[in-house]
Nucleic acid binder design. Structure first.
Lengths: 162, 162
DNA sequence: ACCTCTATTTATAACAT
DNA sequence: TATGTTATAAATAGAGG
């Protein structure tokens, strides 16, 4: 918006679009950081772009997943209970669905966290983007895997020398 | 930041914090809209606050869930295949976990979309925040439910008159 | 393609209503 | 407490290296 006012439309020039994206991406993340700090609220942002194989997930993949999970597992609205009788059949279906999603979501969440952990271990995500809590979880997972690997190594060594 | 430069720290004054949140919330969403329009990228933002019972989900709950699903179902990294032999056991566990999450995620996603649809139908989410694609999906779901309700009504009417 | 440097536009803190 | 106004800080488009 400096130098000249820009029309709010897709930038067709490839390099200009990339430059604008990089600048505005950091600006957006900065604003997100500021609002959480200033107002003490929870937030997350996910930015996909063709300029990076990975999405930019703020504040961290794990924190984002926690915020997302909260969104996904929201309880069904009180209002549903006040629905007119003709809708009771539909409401029952909602309650069944919601229950199923909540159950499945809880199960799924652990798998997701495990997946993110593996992404960190494989170097696709930097440790520096993880919070203290995330790092504790990671530490536990690493210990578990180390025990498995140690047993495996022990087996190979015994087999080799025996 | 105008009138005076503000320190980046939690605002202890309740009403000032609320005011700042409202202003910055709209600013952040505007910036998110701009970057997607200008650069043609996908993005989503979720803002939780004590000022609203529902989180502010941008661009819409359904679109956000699509972006999130893409994040959750990312394929395991190529690098894993290059891991040293001692780690192969751990890698196999990762592949199994990832496969399971992907399968579960696909199943779960449909339930999530259904859940959001019900939230819209119950008035907890405004239709105006849904995109054209979301509205088409919603339209189909409404039609389905109408058929069920019609059948139910027909049954009651027959029972009453018979 | 990526910095640095402005000229401007935009966002917004404090004030006013 | 919400909404409107304004002075100032911050973000950023385009230029130059």
């Amino acid at each position: 918006m400096p130098r000249s006012k820009v029309k709010l439309a897709y930038i067709s020039n490839d390099s200009a679009r990339r430059t604008t994206f990089r600048k505005r991406e950091s600006g957006l993340i900065k604003k997100a950081e500021e609002i959480t700090t200033l107002c003490g609220v929870e937030a997350c942002a996910i930015l996909y772009s063709p300029y990076s194989p990975e999405p930019n997930v703020w504040p961290s993949p794990l924190d984002a997943q926690r915020v997302i999970s909260r969104f996904r597992n929201m309880a069904p609205p009180e209002q549903n209970r006040k629905m007119v009788d003709q809708q009771s059949f539909a409401r029952q279906r909602l309650e069944k669905t919601t229950e199923k999603v909540t159950k499945l979501g809880t199960e799924n969440r652990h798998n997701e966290m495990t997946q993110v952990m593996y992404q960190c271990l494989s170097g696709r995500l930097g440790f520096e983007c993880l919070s203290i809590g995330d790092l504790c979880y990671l530490s536990g997972l690493v210990s578990q895997n180390l025990r498995v690997i140690d047993r495996r190594l022990e087996f190979f060594q015994r087999h080799h020398s025996g």
